[in-house]
Design a binder for these strands. Structure first.
Length: 685
DNA sequence: CTAGGGTTAG
C-alpha cells in the first residue's frame, strides 16, 4: 500500500545504511535530511535506529515531522518502533496520540503491535488503557499476557498482576521464562517468600534453572525477603552470571546489614573481570549510605566518576542522603549544581531529596524554592516539605501546606499527620493540633498510631498543659511509648513541674533504661528543685547501670572545612580568642541584667565554677568560633548532637542580637533560628 | 524480562 516514492539514489542508500550499521545516527540523519522525499523504508530504518539507541525523543520527533508534512504513510514496522519509543519515554499523552494513529491507520488486529501498545501503556502508567486494549484483542499470545502482567507491575498494582497470572494459568497460553520472571519480580516487590519458594520449585520442576534472568530474579526475591543465605546458594549455583546477577547479590548483603561482604564481593567482581555498570556503583553507594558509612559512600561516588561510569539519576538520589546525613550543605549544593549542569531529566525523587537536604542543612528557603519548582508533587514530596517546616518551627506553614496538599487532590497519610502534629507542637498551636488529630480518623479514615498519640502529648506538654498531657497518656488506647513519656518529662523540665516530672521520669527509667537523656532530664528537675537526695539517687542509678552521658559535640562548616568542638575542649585553633570572646559576652550580658542559667549544671560546684563549665559547652565554642571567622552577613549554621542547653540558648540569642547576625543551631530535636534577640523555638527548647 | 533511589520523636 505504500508506493515507493521518488527513488533515492543508490549511493545515498548505501552510505545511509552503513552509517546506521556503525551506529552513527547523526551522520545518517544529515544524509536523510537531504532527501526530498524519503520513502517509508529509510524512515523506518532511521526511526527504529533511534529507538534502539535509546533516543526515543528523536524517534518520535522525526515521526511527527514526517506526519505533519504528510510525507509518510506508516506501516506496521514503523508504528511498532514508534510505540516502543513512546514506551521508553513514558509519556502518557504521546501514548494516547500514537494509539489513535495506529487505529487511524487500521492496524488494530496486528498482534505484535497490540502487544507493544499494551507494554507502552503499562510503561506510561496507564493501566486501565492497557487492560482495555488487552480485552479488545481478538487473539492473544503468551507475550500479550506477559505484557499485561508487566504493565501491572510497572503501575505498582502487584496483587492485580498476580491475578492476571492466575487467570493465565487457567485460560491462557503456556507460560515462558519471561512470564515467570515477571511474576517473580512482582513477588519480590511484595516481599512474598511464599510465592518466591513456589516459583523456585516450579523453576526446578520445569527446567528453567539455567535461565540466567530467572536465576537473578530468584536471588533478588530471597534478598528482598532477607533470606541472604538462600540468595547466596542460588547465586553460587548459577551456571552463568551477568553484571545484574552480581548487582543483586551486592544489594542482598547491603540490605542485610553485611556491608563488609558486599565490599568483598564488589572487589571480587573486579578481579573476575565483570564489567561494572552504573547500577553496580549505585548499589555500593546506597549500601554504604544505608549502613551509615557516609564517607565511604562519597569515596565510591568519586571512584565511580574516575572509572568513567557516568552517574545517573539514581546515583544522585543515592548520594544526596549522604550530604543530608552529614549536614553538608556544600556537598549538597555541589550535587544540586551537578544535576543542573548535566540537565538530568526532572526527577521527583531527586527533587524530594534536595528539598530534604536543604532543610536538614538549615536552609529552609532554598528547600522551599526547590519544592515550589517541582512540576509534580506526590505524597512523599508534600510530606517532606511539611516535615521540613516542622523541623524549623514553622507550624503555621505546615498547616497551610496541609491545606494546599488537600486542595491538589492528594490524600494525607500517617506521615503527613506526624509532620503536622510536630509542627503544631513546636509552634504551640494546641487547638490546631487537636483539630488535626481528631480529623485524622473522622475525615481521612486513618487510625492514629502510637507516634501520633505521643505527638499529642508533646503538643500539650510544650504548651504547658501538663496535667492534661498526663491524663491523655493515661487514657490513650495504645500503649504509651517512651517518646510519649519523654515529651511529658521534657514539658515538666521546661515548666518546672517536679511532681509530674518525677512520675514521668520514673516510668522512663523503667521502660527505656538505656537512654542517658532520661536520667539527665530527671536529674535537672531534681537539681532545679533543690532535691539533692533524689538527684544523687539518680546519679547512683546511672553509675550502677553503667549509663554514660554522651559527650556534647558541635560542629560548624566554615569555608570548606568542618570544625568540631567537644564540651570542655581546650585544644582547638584560636582557643584564647574564643574563650576571651565568650567571657566578654558574659560580662556584657551581666551589665544588661542577664543571669547565667546555672540550674542546668550537674556538678555540685559553686557559682563561679559553674559559669566556667557553662562557658565550655560545645555549642557556645562553635558559635563563638564561627563569629570570629565568618564574613559579615553570612548565616552561621551550627549543629549539635544533643539538645541545646538553656544557658547556651540565652547566650547565643544575646550574641545574635548584639552582633547583628543570624545564627542557626540544629540540635537533636529541631532547628533554632536566632535573630534580633529571639529564637524561632520561642524559648521552649 | 532481572539490579541500583525519596518522607515520621522527645
Amino acid at each position: 500500500m505504500n508506493q515507493i516514492l521518488p527513488k533515492m539514489p543508490a549511493s545515498f542508500i548505501g552510505q545511509f545504511k552503513s552509517y546506521l550499521n556503525c551506529g552513527q545516527l547523526n551522520q545518517a540523519r544529515n544524509l536523510f535530511d537531504k532527501i526530498p522525499n524519503p520513502n517509508i523504508y529509510s524512515s523506518t530504518l532511521l526511526i527504529s535506529a533511534y529507538t534502539k539507541q535509546n533516543r526515543p525523543l528523536d524517534s518520535i520527533q522525526l515521526y511527527q515531522n514526517l506526519r505533519k508534512e504528510k510525507k509518510l504513510q506508516p506501516d506496521n514496522l514503523l508504528l511498532l518502533s514508534i510505540t516502543k519509543a513512546c514506551a521508553l519515554l513514558s509519556d502518557p499523552i504521546k501514548a494516547k496520540e500514537i494509539h489513535k494513529d495506529v487505529i487511524g491507520f487500521g492496524f488494530k488486529s496486528d498482534l505484535p503491535l497490540g502487544n507493544a501498545l499494551i507494554e507502552m501503556y503499562g510503561k506510561c502508567g496507564l493501566i486501565s488503557e492497557a487492560q482495555q486494549l488487552f480485552d479488545e484483542l481478538p487473539v492473544k499470545d503468551v507475550i500479550t499476557w506477559t505484557s499485561l502482567i508487566l504493565s501491572y507491575k510497572n503501575c505498582k498494582q502487584f496483587r492485580e498482576g498476580l491475578g492476571v497470572f492466575r487467570e493465565m494459568l487457567i485460560s491462557g497460553p503456556k507460560l515462558n521464562s519471561v512470564t515467570l520472571l515477571s511474576v517473580l519480580a512482582i513477588s519480590s516487590k511484595l516481599k512474598s517468600l511464599k510465592f518466591g519458594r513456589e516459583i523456585h520449585c516450579f523453576v526446578i520442576r520445569n527446567g528453567f534453572e539455567d535461565n540466567m534472568f530467572i536465576g537473578s530474579g530468584l536471588v533478588d526475591i530471597y534478598s528482598k525477603c532477607l533470606i541472604t543465605h538462600d540468595a547466596r546458594i542460588v547465586f553460587d549455583g548459577m551456571r552463568s552470571k551477568d553484571v545484574v546477577s552480581w548487582n543483586v547479590i551486592l544489594s542482598a548483603y547491603s540490605l542485610n546489614g553485611d556491608l563488609d561482604e558486599a565490599l568483598r564481593l564488589f572487589d571480587k567482581m573486579k578481579v573476575d573481570g565483570v564489567l561494572l555498570n552504573s547500577a553496580s556503583w549505585n548499589s555500593m553507594i546506597s549500601g554504604c549510605v544505608q549502613n551509615g558509612r557516609i564517607e565511604r559512600a562519597l569515596q565510591f561516588f568519586a571512584q565511580m566518576q574516575d572509572s568513567g561510569t557516568k552517574p545517573n539519576h539514581i546515583t544522585i538520589a543515592s548520594i544526596l542522603p549522604a550530604c543530608t546525613g552529614m549536614e553538608s550543605i556544600r556537598g549538597g549544593r555541589e550535587i544540586h549544581g551537578y544535576v543542573y549542569r548535566n540537565a538530568f531529566i526532572k526527577d521527583i525523587i531527586i527533587d524530594t531529596g534536595l528539598v530534604l537536604m536543604y532543610a536538614k542543612c538549615g536552609d529552609l528557603n532554598t528547600s522551599r524554592l526547590v519544592f515550589d519548582q517541582m512540576p509534580r508533587k506526590d505524597i512523599i514530596a508534600w510530606n517532606t516539605m511539611i516535615v521540613a517546616n516542622s523541623m524549623h518551627g514553622c507550624g503555621k506553614e505546615t498547616l497551610t501546606l496541609f491545606d494546599k496538599m488537600i486542595e491538589s487532590g492528594i490524600r494525607p497519610d500517617a506521615v503527613t499527620f506526624s509532620g503536622v502534629l510536630s509542627g503544631c507542637s513546636h509552634s504551640q498551636l494546641v487547638d490546631k493540633a487537636r483539630q488535626s488529630f481528631s480529623s485524622m480518623e473522622r475525615e481521612y479514615g486513618l487510625n492514629p498510631d502510637a507516634d501520633h498519640y505521643a505527638s499529642m502529648v508533646d503538643v500539650l506538654s510544650r504548651a504547658g498543659y501538663l496535667n492534661e498531657a498526663y491524663e491523655f497518656i493515661q487514657n490513650m488506647p495504645v500503649e504509651p511509648t517512651p517518646s510519649a513519656w519523654g515529651a511529658l518529662l521534657n514539658g515538666c523540665k521546661v515548666y518546672k513541674n517536679t511532681e509530674l516530672g518525677k512520675i514521668a521520669g520514673e516510668v522512663l527509667l523503667d521502660i527505656e533504661p538505656q537512654n542517658p537523656g532520661n536520667y539527665l532530664s530527671l536529674l535537672n528537675i531534681f537539681v532545679g528543685a533543690k532535691m539533692y537526695d533524689d538527684a544523687s539517687r539518680i546519679r547512683m542509678l546511672m553509675n550502677d547501670r553503667g549509663i554514660r552521658k554522651e559527650p556534647g559535640c558541635s560542629w560548624v562548616q566554615i569555608k570548606n572545612k568542618v570544625y568540631t568542638f567537644v564540651k570542655g575542649d581546650d585544644r582547638f585553633a584560636m582557643r584564647n580568642e574564643v574563650y576571651g570572646f565568650l567571657k566578654e559576652t558574659r560580662r556584657k550580658m551581666r551589665v544588661e541584667g542577664y543571669m547565667p542559667d546555672t540550674d542546668i549544671v550537674l556538678q555540685d560546684v559553686d557559682g563561679e565554677e559553674k559559669e566556667e563549665v557553662l562557658c565550655s559547652h560545645s555549642e557556645k565554642l562553635a558559635v563563638a568560633f564561627a563569629i570570629l571567622n565568618l564574613d559579615r552577613g553570612e548565616v552561621i549554621r551550627v549543629f549539635k548532637n544533643l539538645r541545646i542547653c538553656g544557658d547556651c540558648h540565652g547566650v547565643i540569642s544575646f550574641m545574635a542580637k548584639s552582633i547583628g547576625v543570624c545564627i542557626t543551631v540544629r540540635d537533636s530535636v529541631r532547628f533554632h533560628h536566632f535573630k534580633d534577640g529571639s529564637c524561632s523555638c520561642k524559648n521552649l527548647w
